[in-house]
């Protein structure tokens, strides 16, 4: 019986397993191999050892793009997780109109990246954009949004705050799975909402939050590609030159696919390291939250 179920499960998972192998695992392996070559897609491939990695070490633009990518992840991920958690808790109780609110919170996530970026390109326009207009109306320099390094990075983070549908929907589902009895007990005991959140909801949701944070770090490092390509073009003065854009330029504009593969490998390893550290830290924090 188990075997039969196992086989059925495997059959159902097969399309995903096959496509993941072809579209993710094999290209990842090939990228690792190319990282040690001078591959440009046109000339004879030569094994160059760690030469690409030593080039990266001395490449100031690589370090700039890495720093920018970390900056976006460091600022964006906590904000995105916090907002998604807030929305998930806010929209958990069944009230009138909650269905529409849940859909609205998810909607920006399903907009294709290029359309989303083009929309923001107009909204952030220094003179004609509504966002710049609103900020200027508050007495702040709205026309500087895309024109200063801080403004441009802030804009990239800001537009990413609306694409939290996947995080929010997972948190909403996780919250709805929490046992009602515990909350009823809290109500009987007369605990405050903050105490319930801190001592009950947060610890129980922590495994989900750890997983989502790790996922969002990886997402943040990659998702900057379209906005930086379409909206800021890496500027001003390389302030929004993120790793994916720099890798794209090297690989697809300058035909240095070997070097671009080495950069991708470094990004892959750093992402893995960041996720590992996060998971360790958050697991430790979870211990503090435990009842």
């Amino acid at each position: 019986m188990f075997r039969r179920e196992h086989r059925t499960g495997l059959m159902l998972a097969m399309p995903l397993l096959v496509s993941t192998t072809i579209l993710v695992l094999i290209p990842t392996l090939v990228t690792f191999i190319f990282a040690f070559t001078n591959f440009d897609g046109l000339s004879q491939i030569k094994w160059v050892g760690f030469s690409n990695f030593s080039k990266i070490w001395g490449d100031t633009l690589f370090w700039t793009s890495l720093k920018n990518s970390f900056y976006i992840a460091a600022v964006g991920v906590p904000l995105r997780i916090t907002i998604a958690l807030f929305l998930a808790l806010l929209l958990t109780p069944e009230r009138t109109g909650v269905g529409a609110a849940r859909s609205s919170a998810f909607l920006p996530t399903v907009i294709p990246d290029i359309s989303y970026a083009l929309l923001w390109l107009w909204m952030l326009n220094p003179i004609y954009g509504p966002v710049a207009y609103l900020i200027s109306a508050l007495g702040l320099p709205g026309d500087q949004l895309l024109l200063t390094p801080f403004g441009a990075r802030f804009s990239i983070v800001f537009m990413s705050l609306f694409q939290i549908g996947e995080i929010y929907i997972v948190l909403l589902a996780a919250r709805r799975e929490l046992p009602h009895e515990l909350y009823e007990l809290c109500t009987i005991e007369g605990t405050s909402a903050f105490w319930t959140f801190k001592r009950l909801t947060l610890p129980l949701l922590m495994p989900t939050i750890v997983f989502l944070t790790a996922r969002d770090v990886a997402w943040s490092l990659q998702s900057t590609f379209v906005p930086s390509l379409v909206i800021t073009k890496g500027g001003p003065n390389f302030a929004t030159l993120f790793l994916p854009l720099y890798i794209y330029q090297n690989g697809f504009e300058y035909m240095r696919l070997g070097l671009a593969s080495a950069m991708t490998t470094v990004m892959f390893l750093l992402t893995g390291l960041m996720i590992f550290v996060q998971v360790r830290v958050l697991r430790f924090r979870k211990g503090l939250f435990d009842l």
Binding site: D40, G41, L42, Y248, F252, E253, Y254, M255, L257
Partner: peptide, 14 residues
């Protein structure tokens, strides 16, 4: 122009 270059490069590599 930048898309022109990227498209040419990828088409040559491909």
């Amino acid at each position: 122009q930048a898309d022109h270059m990227a498209k040419l490069t990828t088409s040559f590599v491909g």
